[in-house]
Amino acid sequence: MNPIDILNKFIIQELDGDVFLLLDYDLKRLKNNAVLGCPNRRFDPDDTNLMRAVYCIVFGDVWTNLSLENSGDGKLRGDTINSSATFFSYPWNDKFTPKWEPSIELTEKIKNFQHTFHTIGNMMVLPDKRIDGWSINKHRGCHDEWHDYEDRFLSALYKVLTNKSDFDEDLMELVQQNDEDFAPFYGEEGWRNFINGNILNDYVDADFLPVVKSKGYTWWRGGYVNKQRYFAEANRYIDDSTRVIHNRGKRMIEILKERLCY
């Protein structure tokens, strides 16, 4: 099936024909789906067959080489924009709660976010050709300053794509490894196209300069930490990420609605 047929079938069978229900659909529900999940590969919500079809429809005119055949590891791959594990660890291996002892209110808020961050508005495309097994996705997540925070990563990517003097050399090498896919996005105009095309406008100002809001906190943070500031950042991060995810998801659904003729 082609991407449009995949989406139409899913919307009819799973969403009772209402494409707007996709906004809050938890992609983890596809874990055991032999067709729309990740058959014969490790399950990852951002790389499910359903999301591959969504990427092709929504971003097919942004990434010129994007297709179902050219999706996945080592190709053009889905990436989760806002992480939960960096700040709050994994719900199935919760190391955040015993270390930080959050309030009941924050615990419930984290639980809700761990659903929200697995919805379509939190998923984007990144080129995935690798150097010694190291991808842009992995570099972004393991970098000592970025820690998988999208605002910090985009600030670094902006410097690479616009050739600022203080760009991250390792990220530059990975971008060059994926030069064919990044080719339309070099320079200030290319950067604007990257932001607009991938619906990442909530991460830049009116001049398309990246805005870094996150403090880069991690659940394993050591040394002295003021808990009041730490929990304030936890609440800000969830609130801001949730707003971005919902805004972006609505725009993606509007594109789907138009291209699926709903």
Score class of each variant (00 low, 15 high):
Asn235Trp: 13
Glu101Ala: 12
Thr107Ala: 13
Ile110Cys: 08
Asp239Ala: 12
Leu126Asp: 01
Phe113Ser: 05
Glu108Asp: 08
Asn65Leu: 07
Cys56Leu: 07
Lys31Glu: 15
Pro91Lys: 11
Phe185Gly: 06
Gly190Leu: 12
Asn2His: 13
Thr162Trp: 11
Glu108Phe: 00
Leu50Pro: 02
Tyr203Met: 01
Asn33Ser: 05
Pro127Gln: 06
Phe88Val: 03
Phe10Asn: 02
Gln114Val: 01
Asn122Pro: 04
Thr162Pro: 05
Gly74Met: 02
Gly78Met: 08
Arg77Val: 01
Ile81Glu: 11
Gln13Gly: 00
Gly17Arg: 06
His118Thr: 02
Gln13Thr: 15
Cys142Arg: 13
Ile110Tyr: 08
Phe113Ala: 08
Val125His: 05
Leu209Cys: 03
Asp181Ala: 05
Tyr224Asp: 09
Gly17Gln: 06
Asp148Lys: 05
Ala206Trp: 00
Ser67Trp: 03
Met252Val: 08
Leu126Ala: 00
Lys109Pro: 00
Cys261His: 14
Glu101Val: 06
Asn65Arg: 13
Met252Glu: 12
Phe96Ala: 10
Lys95Asp: 09
Ile110His: 06
Asn2Val: 12
Asn198Asp: 01
Ile253His: 04
Asn82Gly: 00
Asn82Asp: 12
Leu76Gln: 08
Arg192Glu: 15
Arg41Thr: 13
Glu169Phe: 03
Pro184Asn: 09
Ile11Trp: 09
Tyr230Ala: 00
Asp205Gln: 04
Cys142Met: 14
Ile136Gln: 03
His139Gly: 02
Phe185Cys: 13
Thr119Asn: 10
Ser155Tyr: 10
Gly249Thr: 08
Glu233Phe: 14
Pro91Val: 14
Ile253Val: 13
Arg140Asp: 07
